[in-house]
């Protein structure tokens, strides 16, 4: 009985490998559910985000200098102050993972401008994606989960990842959430009151450096930023990069030349922190496609995939939380 199976194994492997290399060209389409299944992995942390599960809530305000107002009619770009709720987090599905092991750090913001105007932003430390579409991104996550060798093979098969790899090779994690640069990665269109459209990317640029880590342990970054903000506000400059006609706003793997015009729209000021389950950021789906008037999504396939994937993650954890709350109240 064993004999035929053993003989078939090499043939099967060859078939799988050839399927794999064909997939590198045109990856099989995956659904939002498959994508979130992969992010969630084998260990389910009920009630938590499927990606960037570990984080803490922050609060603060955007102090706009008015410089971006000619480009976008969004109300927060007029000179003035707009409060926000935000979240600092690390990549991964585990809400108790060690802070310093995560390869990516994030800052998400939610501006509740009015009952009809909301803006959610989800920004990460890398300035570009390694891949240009969600189906290849799925394969990248599979490779990351499979280990260092698989990811090296993946990168070798995907030359579009070169800018990401160059960034990753020189990136030195800061000793603080306050010392990182957080990128929009995807491009968006700003729309001004005349209806003119300008493709932009943005980054939150730190105003402090933190070369050494003063804390250790699994919650080092959370402890550090909580202590830092308790002593005084943490400030970032919100810098927009304006695309030229020759730039591709729909390809998240390619940065635009450094010579492009930049506009500093003002300062993002973090003034408070709170544990995520005890504060209001936990309930927010930081879907970057929730946009106010004056900002529009580009056709970037990665950006366009984010709404459905975020919605699936949000739906799952909301249901778990809702059912948990029901169970708790039935015990009362």
């Amino acid at each position: 009985m064993m004999q035929p199976n053993t003989l078939m194994l090499p043939a099967l492997l060859t078939l799988l490998l050839s399927a794999g290399s064909a997939a590198a060209k045109t990856p099989p389409k995956v659904s939002a559910q498959q994508f979130v299944d992969l992010q969630q992995g084998n260990s389910l942390f009920a009630g938590f985000r499927r990606a960037h599960a570990k984080g803490l809530c922050v609060s603060g305000e955007f102090r706009s200098n008015g410089e971006l107002a000619p480009y976008s009619s969004a109300s927060l770009f007029k000179a003035g102050v707009t409060p926000f709720v935000g979240r600092l987090s690390i990549a991964g599905n585990n809400p108790t993972a060690p802070d310093l092991k995560a390869p990516v750090r994030s800052l998400a913001l939610s501006f509740s401008l009015s009952r009809t105007e909301q803006w959610r932003l989800a920004m990460n430390t890398p300035p570009v994606m390694a891949v240009a579409d969600p189906h290849t991104f799925y394969q990248q996550i599979q490779a990351i989960q499979a280990g260092p060798e698989a990811i090296q093979q993946f990168f070798a098969a995907h030359p579009e990842s070169s800018e990401f790899r160059t960034w990753a090779a020189q990136y030195k994690p800061s000793g603080s959430f306050a010392g990182e640069t957080y990128h929009s990665i995807n491009a968006f269109y700003l729309i001004n009151s005349d209806g003119q459209q300008q493709a932009v990317r943005w980054a939150l640029m730190p105003t402090v450096t933190a070369d050494t880590m003063a804390f250790d342990g699994d919650n080092a970054l959370q402890q550090e930023i909580s202590a830092r903000i308790a002593e005084g506000p943490v400030v970032f400059n919100w810098v927009f990069t304006l695309a030229d006609a020759s730039d591709d706003e729909n390809n998240a793997t390619k940065a635009w030349p450094a010579s492009r015009r930049q506009v500093n729209a003002g300062q993002i000021v973090l003034t408070g922190t709170a544990a995520q389950l005890e504060s209001n950021c936990h309930g927010i789906n930081f879907d970057p496609l929730v946009l106010p008037s004056g900002i529009k999504a580009t056709a970037d396939p990665i950006l366009r995939a984010r709404s459905a994937a975020y919605a699936e993650s949000y739906r799952r954890r909301a249901k778990e939380q809702f059912q948990g709350a029901l169970e708790e109240s039935s015990h009362d």
Binding site: T116, E117, N280, V290, F322
Partner: peptide, 26 residues
């Protein structure tokens, strides 16, 4: 979920200023 609904670019329907994840889920 705090997501204003945009109606054909003409106007927007209001949403809650603060998200309520439990009622969203329901």
């Amino acid at each position: 979920a705090g997501r204003p609904v945009e109606v054909f670019g003409w106007f927007r329907l209001p949403a809650a200023l603060e998200v309520n994840i439990g009622l969203y889920s329901l």
